[in-house]
Amino acid sequence: MARMFPPGAGPSPDPAGSHHERRIRSFQPRRSRVTKGQRTALEQLWPRWGFDVDGMRQLDLGKLFGDPDLPIVLEIGFGMGEATAEMAAADPATGILAVDVHTPGQGNLLRLADEQGLDNVRVGNGDAIILLREMLAQDSLSGLRIYFPDPWPKARHHKRRLVQPEFLDLAAGPLRPGALLHCATDWEEYAEQMLDVLSAHPEYENTRPDGGYAPRPAHRPLTRFEGQGLTKGHAVHDLVFRRS
């Protein structure tokens, strides 16, 4: 895939390259049309607020955010970034490490952050598995958010779903004790799988005493994908588990 930006001036098309083992990806890399505003934001802001998930170094989150004491929440998959920007604006005392592979969404989130004066958002480009495995220190995250991940509805593709026991093993390292893992989906069968694998994992405990789904927390805005699901009559389920 051809590079859209000069080196260092925007996200790379394949940041990890051949440096790390290939695996079944839980996402589809997308390079749809980038608007003029998104391109401008990427070119101007990427060197300051963006980074490639290349797996070649461990991130110094205190340096990345300019505050070693700032609690950091990782958000995997943020779409066009509207909900991420809204959460960042509502909670400036928390840093949001937002990771996706969608170039227009990366540009749009950077544009929103710039327009709203949000200095608590950093945008990562690449595979969140490599980020968790290679680039984040033990106990470096105060939370993990996974909102409306690809449900991979066909049975033969279920192995591509992100929330699996192996993923939870990996996330348990960077998540410090007491950190919250918050998932949301409008796909009923995927919600059931999430609840099963999270409930069975020894490193996580459900914040719900009844062991079920949680009401939508006030800090999670109504996302575009959620609106689409509700329009289709889908029930939306939130799962909020604590790293033990």
Rank of each mutant, 00 (worst) to 15 (best):
K154T: 06
I24D: 14
A98H: 01
D67I: 03
L42H: 08
Y204L: 06
L70W: 04
V197N: 07
A214V: 15
K154Y: 10
V197L: 11
G8V: 01
P174K: 12
L170T: 14
V163R: 11
M4I: 00
V240P: 14
D54W: 12
V163P: 05
G77L: 03
G117Q: 05
I146Y: 02
T35G: 09
E226T: 09
P215L: 08
G124I: 08
G211F: 09
K36M: 13
L70D: 02
P104L: 13
H19T: 14
V197A: 11
G105H: 02
F65M: 03
L230F: 12
P217M: 09
H201L: 14
Q193L: 15
R243G: 09
S199C: 12
D52S: 02
G126R: 04
N206D: 15
D238H: 11
V163W: 07
P165G: 06
L144R: 05
G62N: 08
D210Q: 12
G10C: 07
G143K: 08
E43V: 00
D69P: 01
T223E: 11
A128E: 04
T103V: 14
R145Y: 06
S199M: 09
H19D: 05
R111M: 01
I146V: 15
R48F: 06
A98Q: 02
K63C: 09
A184W: 13
R145I: 06
A137T: 15
G10A: 06
T94Y: 01
L131R: 07
P221Q: 09
D196R: 13
D114V: 00
L195P: 00
T103C: 00
S142M: 10
A90L: 11
L168H: 04
L195A: 10
R23A: 07
G10W: 04
V34W: 12
L59V: 02
L175S: 08
R242L: 11
H219Y: 11
W49R: 00
P71E: 13
H234D: 14
V73G: 02
A89N: 05
Q228R: 14
A83P: 01
